[in-house]
Design a protein around this nucleic acid. Structure first.
Ligand SMILES: [Zn+2]
Length: 485
DNA sequence: CGCCTTTGACCAGCGC
DNA sequence: GCGCTGGTCAAAGGCG
């Protein structure tokens, strides 16, 4: 399975690479300025030589065209080489990550050997493996995106582009600097929507959960399925964080124990998008803004919004996947995870890790991942040791990550905040075509019963110790933080 | 005019 | 059953 996927994804990569070069050639060819080494191009060249030799000027022009074509061809070849280098780089990283991951899984298994090893664990591990393979499969399209981006000459939206680039790079594949510079090459091509991603059917999580629940006979159907949440704590003076998405406020409440009202927002990018977020100031420190995301988008997202979105969906997957796979519909779970994780983001190197912990809010019935951007950067305080709760807390400390140059806004514990008017965000109004397909929660990944402590713990541990997950979360936060730039 | 925010009403879950 | 609380709805009004 895994191998199959990896292979197929590799083929996809190759095919796309070739396709790209060819199409470039054709583009160039139609302009009569370029030449590419394929047979196709030779045909073009022959065409040009068939011109009646009536005018020397025409011949001269043809020669000049040929020269420039050669030059361009050289450029294309260079780029091709770069891409190949990049590909091998990615593969190397993938392999090392896979090693890491299997190590982690093994450690996990060892630790759990004292406990009863349930089928859930096995499945989980399997899922995780499948995630890797599938995500690489996705990365082929991601790679395509990269390629396309590499052709964008102007770097106006460089930040967003980087996000887009990173978005495609699953499993912490980092873009080599040499490659990044290659974005300076000319040519214009922005149609960057891999169909394979677009096509994916999209299921609201709640629907899925209900479906799953109805399959499981003993569990009574609940009106509010427990959706995983991602909570972000950041210092922010503005009323809300600008995460690149479009939100409509649909409610406000003064919650108990906090004088500051909690605002409820709903994603309005897609008409049926189930994503919600809650924004509330911390009662202890009013400068801290707590933003809680719930659900995953079922529509394409602006570049600036994808990181956060993928993080939430990844979190949802992470927290919900643990108990499902022992059921007949486990395959769907796997898919979900694959989808979600495939959206993992690698990030431009300059992000310092932050605390990420999974208290799984014992106070609410929602499993929650909390990302704390407010603590001093190198703080290593671990949150909440294990407790026996419905959703046992798990803590993570990411400060040990190697990549570390903190953006100024982060190092202060401050994040960029947008204004309330998200719709004013130039990235959102449809002016930009840098939408990347974002599919998530399109497949069932719900628990059919309350998650067992061990399962959740194992799931969170396994996944969060996975570098790609860390990367994804970092990316998400970074996106939120940097989206306003 | 369309989309937004505001805000009180309403609903469901939960504990007693 | 009742009250509390969190979350959502929807009418009303504002804004560009
Ligand atoms: Zn959405």
């Amino acid at each position: 399975m895994e191998e199959t996927f990896r292979r197929s994804s590799m083929e996809g990569l190759m095919v796309k690479e070739e396709t790209r070069v060819e199409s470039d050639g054709e583009d160039v060819g139609t302009n009569n300025t370029g030449k590419v080494s394929g047979n196709k191009r030779k045909a073009h060249d022959d065409d040009s030589t068939w011109n009646p030799p009536s005018s020397d000027q025409k011949n001269l022009g043809t020669i000049k065209q040929l020269e420039s074509a050669k030059t361009k061809m050289g450029e294309v070849r260079e780029e091709n080489e770069r891409l190949k280098t990049l590909l091998s780089h990615i593969l190397k990283q993938y392999q090392s990550l896979q090693k890491d991951f299997s190590n982690t899984v093994q450690q996990n298994q060892d630790k759990k050997s004292t406990l009863t090893i349930t089928s859930t664990d096995q499945d989980q591990i399997q899922e995780a493996h499948e995630f890797f393979s599938l995500s690489l499969g996705r990365s082929s399209s991601a790679f395509k995106i990269e390629e396309k981006y590499s052709n964008i000459g102007k770097l106006k939206k460089n930040d967003d582009l980087q996000e887009g680039l990173a978005l495609g790079l699953d499993c912490k594949f980092e873009v080599p600097n040499s490659y990044q510079t290659s974005k300076n090459t000319s040519l214009e091509n922005r149609s960057i929507v891999p169909k394979e991603v677009e096509i994916r059917e999209q299921w609201p999580l709640s629907k899925i959960i209900k479906t799953m629940r109805s399959e499981g006979d003993e569990v009574p159907e609940q009106t509010h399925p427990k959706k995983a949440r991602v909570s972000v704590r950041a210092r922010c003076d503005a009323p809300t964080m600008n995460d690149g998405c479009q939100w409509r406020k649909y409610g406000q409440k003064i919650s108990k124990g906090n004088p500051c009202p909690r605002a409820y927002f709903r994603c309005t990018v897609g008409p049926t998008c189930p994503v919600r977020k809650q924004v509330q100031r911390c009662s202890e420190d009013m400068s801290i803004l707590i933003t809680t995301y719930e659900g995953t988008h079922n529509h394409p997202l602006p570049m600036s919004a994808t990181a956060m979105a993928s993080s939430t969906s990844a979190a949802a997957c992470m927290l919900l996947s643990g108990s499902t796979s022992s059921h007949p519909l486990g395959t769907s779970t796997t898919n979900t995870c694959a989808n979600l994780h495939s959206l993992n983001l690698s990030f431009p190197d300059n992000y310092k890790s932050r605390q990420i912990y999974l208290p799984n809010s014992s106070f609410s019935s929602h499993p929650t991942i909390t990302l704390d951007l407010t603590a001093p950067s190198s703080s290593s305080s671990l949150y909440t040791p294990y407790q026996i709760n419905r959703f046992p807390p798990t803590s993570l400390n990411f400060s040990s990550l190697e990549s570390s140059t903190t953006p100024a806004s982060w190092s202060n514990g401050y994040s960029e905040c947008g204004t309330q008017s998200y719709y004013k965000n130039p990235m959102v109004g449809g002016k930009n075509k840098e939408y990347i397909p974002y599919m998530a929660e399109n497949n069932p990944s719900p628990p059919q019963q309350p998650l067992s402590t061990e399962t959740i713990a194992a799931a969170t541990k396994a996944i969060t110790s996975d570098p790609s997950f860390r990367t994804a979360l970092e990316a998400a936060i970074s996106s939120v933080v940097g989206s306003g730039v």
